[in-house]
Amino acid sequence: MSALLEVSGLQVAFGELRAVRGVSLTVGKGQTLAVVGESGSGKSITSLAVMGLLPAQARVVEGEISLDGVNLLDLAPEELRRLRGEELAMIFQDPLSALNPSLTVGYQIAEVFRRRRGASRAVATGRAVEAMAEVGIPDAAERAKAYPHEFSGGMRQRVMIAMALALEPRLLIADEPTTALDVTVQAQILRLLRERQRAGLAMIIISHDLGVVARTAQSVVVMYAGQAVESGTVAEVYGTPAHPYTLGLMAASPSARTGRRGIRPIDGNPPDLTALPSGCAFHPRCPFARERCRTETPALRPLPSGRTSACHFAEEVLAHDRAAGA
């Protein structure tokens, strides 16, 4: 299986502040990768860097983002722009603010066909209505004339998905696509995304909801303080976390087995990126921490069965998992 997207050693800085400090990830063709982590861990910045949509103050300091072997960071802005919508697309957490309030949703979808494919207004409008019907918006021809504020949250996210997938891109980045939605609507949106996956769409799903990840992704990257600290298949990482932070994330999420009473939050707060702890950034909150963690920064290293962990004591964490499971 060859990779569709390969990010390696990505570093993004806002002035002096490093928001992303060396992230590598791979998305196979038609595969879905989840990126999980707390707010401020650099998940969204990483995905915006892939799209070439970083805010003006941010810039990529190091690393490579290659799509089908082409380094996107080497492309001229105009070349990268043409890839957006066509190869790469993105949907966002809050579909209300992500849609233009003064244009009808039909216009906003149709303009993709008009501006990118040179379709006439009538043809583009027809295709926009089809796209809306395809994502399950009832009465699409009529609803195309409505404005974003006239839709419910779930319908708005469907509009976003229809718009993002209009030109049949190969990779969709979904940044917290269900966070702002009701639980029942969440399930509908996830079902919609899974249909697209089956049709061959590759995805990066960014979420702090481990349940959403479990239902959509094959593999997962766990981020902490701007770095990837663990990666592997969802089954492996969920079953036997190889990094204490992942272990903490699992304990902090409700599961069917333990219910909400079983939730144990991770002690302490996410680190201040302007004053990172020495050594491993997680050591002040880590129950496994030793002297070595304070002095030596752990590298992301491969473990057996193709997974990785950035913990000096990954083997010990795995042993702990097995003991707890037994």
């Binding site: 949509l53 603010s97 309030p101 501006r115 990118r116 976003m160 718009m163 209009a166």
Partner: peptide, 21 residues
């Protein structure tokens, strides 16, 4: 605003993003 980022994510040119959106 966020919708500007969305417009860019669709691959619209800066001219269209600015003049229309």
């Amino acid at each position: 605003r966020d919708y500007v980022r969305t417009a860019r994510s669709k691959g619209l040119s800066e001219r269209v993003v600015f003049n229309i959106h």
